[in-house]
Amino acid sequence: MDVDWVEWSQGISRRRKALLEKAHGHVLEVAVGTGRNTAYYPTKKCQTITLLDQSGPMLAIAKRKWKDEQPEYFGRAFFKQQSALDPIIPPFDSPEGYDTVIQTMGLCSTPEPVKLLQSLESVTKENGGQILLLEHGKSHYDWLNNLLDKSAPAHANEHGCWWNKDIGKIVEESGLEVVNIKRYNFGTTWWVELKPREGVQRRRANGGGVAQEKSAQAPGSPASQKARWTLWR
Results as ranks from 00 to 15, higher is better:
A77P: 07
L19R: 11
K169T: 07
K214G: 02
G207M: 04
I170W: 04
P219M: 11
A216P: 11
G128S: 08
K67V: 10
P95C: 09
D166T: 01
K195Y: 10
A205Y: 04
R64P: 00
Q81Y: 00
A39H: 14
A154W: 15
G33T: 06
K65N: 14
N145D: 01
G208L: 13
T100P: 14
L176Q: 02
I181L: 08
D142F: 01
A23E: 03
L133M: 09
P71W: 08
L147F: 02
D53M: 05
R233Y: 10
G207T: 02
I61W: 05
Y41P: 13
I12D: 08
N164E: 12
D93W: 15
L176W: 00
L28Q: 04
K44Y: 10
S119D: 05
S151E: 00
K22E: 15
G208R: 05
L52K: 07
A77Y: 06
V200A: 15
G220M: 06
R183L: 03
N180Y: 04
L194V: 12
V123R: 00
I49F: 15
V114F: 00
F78V: 09
P71A: 05
L176E: 02
G97T: 12
Y141E: 00
N206C: 09
D93V: 06
V123P: 01
A223C: 10
H136D: 02
S119P: 09
A62D: 12
F74V: 12
I89N: 13
R183G: 00
H159E: 12
G209L: 03
Y98N: 03
I12T: 11
G209F: 03
L132K: 10
C161M: 12
L116D: 07
V27C: 13
A77N: 15
P111C: 07
A39N: 06
R16N: 10
S122D: 13
G187M: 00
R76K: 15
S55Y: 05
E158M: 09
K169I: 01
G175V: 03
G209Q: 05
I49A: 15
G199S: 08
G128F: 08
I12Q: 15
F79H: 15
A216E: 11
D53Q: 03
A31S: 11
R197G: 02
W5F: 04
I170H: 01
M58H: 09
G128N: 11
I88Y: 04
L132N: 04
G220K: 06
H24R: 08
A152K: 11
P91Q: 15
D93A: 03
G199I: 06
G160L: 15
Q201N: 15
W163K: 03
W232C: 02
M58F: 06
S151A: 10
P219W: 03
P222C: 07
V114M: 00
A31W: 00
Q81S: 13
A156L: 08
K165P: 02
H26N: 07
V179L: 06
F74M: 12
I167M: 08
A31I: 08
G128K: 04
V30L: 01
Q118K: 05
